[in-house]
Design a protein around this nucleic acid. Structure first.
Lengths: 115, 115
DNA sequence: CTCGTATGTAACTTTACGGTTAAATAAAGG
DNA sequence: CCTTTATTTAACCGTAAAGTTACATACGAG
């Protein structure tokens, strides 16, 4: 398991089950049983997924009697969004404009292919 | 390796080396040797990382003589950005407003804890 | 054709991931 | 106290990831 926070967040979201859990939690807190319901998967497996999400800072766990409801922690998602933001221009510009932009910023970087 | 495109993209970006490669490619195309230079890692290892990025649709490879320069493919990053977008309100709202919002949308979803 | 450069493939190792079942822990409620 | 419900921990398994070294392939230049 990676230690840096961005890697952990990306890795956590790489699993469709965990993304589905996130989607469910966007509608509000939920217990492990509630979260596990949609999945054809044992409870411990879901519990593990929650632990991954928690370590990645994507969720936090509460405590109410014997329940430990999970809830979204937005900041880890924000750090991914922030990371992505620096590349937004690559998909938002038209390809032509992007090519122009790249050629421009590459003028300085014109050190040939040799290594 | 996951087959769905979003999982593959998240997984690919979960590795710091691959994110560094992406960062480098944001400045323009580069050969494997150029990309490998900053890393204390064998060339085949970098080649593998490129293959992961390519399978995830994050980069594409060209062919110029014996070089196979890599370049960014923005659309895979866009699909991650789009996925994240649906959660933006969670980190952009103030926590108070968010709580209010959540309580509102949870009225319908008020099925207790039992399972 | 041969050499050097650039890159990819094969085989292997170590470690992590995602799942399982069985048992343990925690808390509420008769 | 004993039981039920909710959840976690432990031990295990199979597969995939990330790296290595050694070898193979591709191409241009002499």
């Amino acid at each position: 398991m990676q230690t840096d926070t961005l890697s952990a967040a990306f890795a956590a979201l790489a699993d469709p089950t965990r993304r589905a859990i996130i989607a469910r939690l966007a509608e509000g807190e939920a217990s492990v049983n509630e979260l596990a319901a949609p999945f054809d998967m044992s409870l411990p497996a879901v519990s593990k997924h929650l632990k991954v999400l928690e370590k990645a800072g994507l969720i936090s766990r509460g405590k109410e009697a014997q329940w430990r409801p999970a809830k979204l922690e937005p900041m880890a998602m924000k750090s991914i969004a922030d990371w992505l933001e620096q590349y937004r221009r690559f998909w938002e510009s038209s390809f032509d404009r992007l090519d122009g932009y790249l050629q421009k910023i590459q003028k300085a970087d014109d050190s040939g292919r040799g290594n």
